[in-house]
């Protein structure tokens, strides 16, 4: 009896351990690489520790800083561009009685359905004709196409969740349709819209193929730097870049979450 219990506990421990390893293993390995100076095969841990690669990543002639700034600017612009489309589209799809509603929603999903390499190669060709290759506008557009599926779908759901009677109550008290949108519908859909903004920001920050085909060589972002470093077998630089990439993601999420809290709480209470 106790033996069976013991073996059950052991089994559970092993399974949990494997899970933890699968999730945290790569991250721990990455963290180790950021502080490793020398580390090769038979050794389980780095042979020499240190921060000299950090200096190499951030030295002025290295392009980590430019790439980081590029990444953040492009991500912010992508969020702005996506919301510019997603708010009116989400309102129309979620509120209005638009015909072919599901067809429109599928349309935004289409770019995701094909291999992204193929999609981006062709986008690059088209953009070349417009002189968009190697420009911020080009890269932001490419990122926006990918972000739209999330921002449009999520904001459609957010707008659809606003009860019609809440809008009617405002109109009844004398508010014009636009005023109702500004003071009632939009604020009530805002938590969902901000959630979609987080998604778009993260997607843009992580985007590789689009930037590779449209931006390179004029515009480099952190994922491109990461790719180059990994290809060169320079794990230290790759790991440090990855860690740096975490900073804007976490910062943006914290900022939005702080802004979100009151409204989300309001929804739960209602």
């Amino acid at each position: 009896m106790t033996a069976r219990l013991k073996s059950a506990a052991l089994l559970r421990g092993i399974v949990l351990g494997l899970f933890a390893f699968a999730i945290f293993g790569p991250i721990a390995n990455m963290l180790l690489w950021t502080v490793a100076e020398v580390w090769y095969y038979p050794h389980k841990l780095p042979i020499e520790w240190g921060f000299s690669f950090w200096e190499r990543v951030f030295r002025p002639q290295g392009n980590a800083r430019v790439s980081l700034i590029n990444s953040v600017i492009i991500a912010l612009l992508t969020v702005a561009a996506s919301l510019l489309v997603a708010v009116p589209a989400g309102f129309a799809l979620g509120r209005g009685r638009l015909p072919w509603r599901s067809l429109f929603l599928l349309l935004f999903l289409l770019p995701q359905a094909f291999p992204s390499l193929a999609v981006h190669m062709n986008i690059a060709r088209i953009f070349y004709g417009f002189g968009l290759n190697g420009t911020y506008t080009g890269v932001v557009l490419v990122h926006t196409i990918q972000g739209l599926v999330f921002s449009v779908w999520i904001s459609t759901a957010a707008f659809a969740a606003v009860d019609y009677e809440l809008e009617e109550a405002a109109r009844n008290l004398g508010a014009s349709p636009f005023h109702v949108f500004r003071t009632i519908t939009f604020p009530l859909a805002l938590p969902g819209i901000l959630a979609s903004a987080i998604f778009v920001f993260l997607i843009s920050l992580d985007e590789f193929t689009g930037t590779y085909f449209v931006g390179v060589p004029d515009i480099t972002t952190l994922p491109l730097l990461l790719f180059t470093a990994s290809m060169e077998g320079n794990y230290q630089i790759a790991s440090i870049t990855a860690l740096v990439l975490l900073v804007p993601s976490v910062a943006f999420m914290l900022a939005v979450e702080k802004f979100l809290k009151a409204d989300v709480l309001a929804r739960i209470g209602a």
Binding site: D163, E165, L166, E168, A169, A170, R171, N172, L173, G174, A175, S176, I184, P187, L188, L190, D263, A266, R267, G269, A270
Partner: peptide
């Protein structure tokens, strides 16, 4: 007239209060 010009105040069964 559209609803906003009718000057009638309606109380909804769901109350329709704005949580924000």
């Amino acid at each position: 007239c559209p609803p906003e010009r009718r000057n009638m105040a309606m109380m909804f069964q769901s109350y329709a209060l704005w949580t924000h």
